[in-house]
Simulated assay, not measured.
Amino acid sequence: MSRHLLMRLRAPLVAFGGETIDSYGVIRDFPALSMVTGLIACALGYDRGDFALHDRLQARIVMGTRIDAGGARLVDFQTAQLNRRDEAWTTHREPETRQGGEDSYKSPHLRHREYHAGLDALVAIRLEPANEQPTLDDVALALDRPKRPLFIGRKPCLPTTRVFIDMIDADHVLGALQQALAPELPDFRFQWPEGEGTLPHSQWRDVCDERNWRTGVHGGWRRVLEGSGPCASNSLELSA
């Protein structure tokens, strides 16, 4: 068996972000590998410029998700009237100035951002190799005492419960999710990596959720499985 760390992702608003097209920030049903990497990196205190640390952490994470409450989807329509003298902070840690002519500021800046409202997700992760720094114990400690603020996908999405739940031993990621204590539902939706367990009637998905942390661009494809099924009748009670 392998040791897995369980995380609870719960907030009034959650954003499992997908591909942003123009001003539309869409969401996915399950959290991206890059999002979980960023969450843990914030807890560990990584700086945005620590590209190698982010890339290595992402490469080591083996993760799966169980949806305990699906919630509802909503769209936040955002508008801001900006002028030429306004500055915006960017991921490059330098203010971004606006270069357009005066006429380009007559219309407001518009964005659409999707959110999950009332979603509750359980994430199981394993780090490979297990003895490399940071270890699962390091991650657990950091999630309880984060060095940077934690948010679930977007900065307004602050967790409303303890993120680190417990450690659990299981043969694979899906097994860890099935063994963890669950609400009384007939079936749950799961997403897990190829080779990390099986469910009847599950379907393959190719997801593009790995980020190149130096360029800030997502690329490549990762094979996952998605399916529905019950949790184990002897689910292990979690400590938090």
Rank of each mutant, 00 (worst) to 15 (best):
residue 54 H to K: 02
residue 43 A to K: 04
residue 206 D to K: 11
residue 172 H to A: 06
residue 53 L to E: 06
residue 222 R to D: 11
residue 131 N to R: 07
residue 196 E to D: 15
residue 5 L to Q: 09
residue 163 V to E: 00
residue 115 Y to N: 13
residue 114 E to G: 01
residue 92 H to Y: 02
residue 185 L to R: 15
residue 229 G to F: 05
residue 95 P to N: 09
residue 51 F to E: 03
residue 180 A to W: 02
residue 56 R to I: 04
residue 132 E to V: 07
residue 220 G to M: 12
residue 208 C to G: 12
residue 99 Q to D: 08
residue 95 P to R: 10
residue 7 M to G: 03
residue 233 S to G: 08
residue 90 T to E: 08
residue 233 S to P: 05
residue 54 H to Y: 14
residue 99 Q to V: 14
residue 77 F to T: 13
residue 144 D to R: 15
residue 36 V to R: 03
residue 181 L to K: 15
residue 86 D to H: 09
residue 57 L to Y: 09
residue 84 R to W: 00
residue 231 C to G: 11
residue 85 R to Q: 04
residue 50 D to N: 04
residue 233 S to E: 15
residue 97 T to R: 07
residue 169 D to F: 11
residue 153 G to I: 07
residue 99 Q to A: 13
residue 167 M to P: 02
residue 182 A to F: 13
residue 11 A to K: 05
residue 20 T to R: 14
residue 154 R to G: 09
residue 216 G to K: 13
residue 114 E to F: 00
residue 190 F to P: 11
residue 198 T to D: 06
residue 59 A to V: 08
residue 56 R to E: 05
residue 215 T to E: 09
residue 187 D to K: 00
residue 169 D to T: 12
residue 200 P to F: 02
residue 168 I to W: 03
residue 12 P to T: 06
residue 72 A to K: 14
residue 23 S to C: 02
residue 22 D to R: 13
residue 200 P to Q: 02
residue 21 I to A: 06
residue 6 L to N: 00
residue 79 T to W: 00
residue 142 A to K: 06
residue 110 L to Q: 04
residue 220 G to S: 09
residue 217 V to M: 14
residue 166 D to H: 11
residue 85 R to W: 01
residue 125 I to M: 02
residue 190 F to D: 13
residue 176 A to K: 04
residue 173 V to R: 00
residue 81 Q to H: 09
residue 119 L to M: 14
residue 132 E to G: 02
residue 44 L to W: 01
residue 2 S to E: 07
residue 206 D to S: 07
residue 186 P to Y: 14
residue 130 A to T: 00
residue 210 E to S: 12
residue 135 T to H: 01
residue 52 A to E: 15
residue 150 L to T: 14
residue 8 R to K: 12
residue 226 E to F: 06
residue 140 A to S: 08
residue 238 L to D: 06
residue 221 W to E: 12
residue 228 S to H: 04
residue 64 G to D: 11
residue 201 H to A: 14
residue 193 P to K: 09
residue 207 V to E: 10
residue 209 D to M: 13
residue 165 I to E: 03
residue 26 V to Q: 03
residue 213 W to F: 11
residue 79 T to K: 01
residue 210 E to Y: 04
residue 87 E to M: 15
residue 97 T to G: 01
residue 28 R to T: 14
residue 20 T to A: 04
residue 199 L to C: 11
residue 17 G to K: 10
residue 103 D to G: 10
residue 5 L to S: 08
residue 91 T to K: 14
residue 226 E to W: 03
residue 163 V to R: 04
residue 31 P to R: 08
residue 24 Y to G: 04
residue 19 E to N: 03
residue 56 R to H: 05
residue 4 H to A: 05
residue 193 P to A: 04
residue 236 L to E: 13
residue 220 G to T: 12
residue 31 P to V: 07
residue 164 F to Q: 08
residue 71 G to F: 02
residue 83 N to D: 12
residue 222 R to T: 15
residue 62 V to D: 01
residue 197 G to Y: 00
residue 205 R to T: 08
residue 43 A to H: 06
residue 78 Q to Y: 05
residue 151 F to A: 12
residue 213 W to Y: 11
residue 190 F to W: 11
residue 79 T to V: 12
residue 105 Y to G: 03
residue 31 P to N: 08
residue 209 D to G: 09
residue 1 M to S: 08
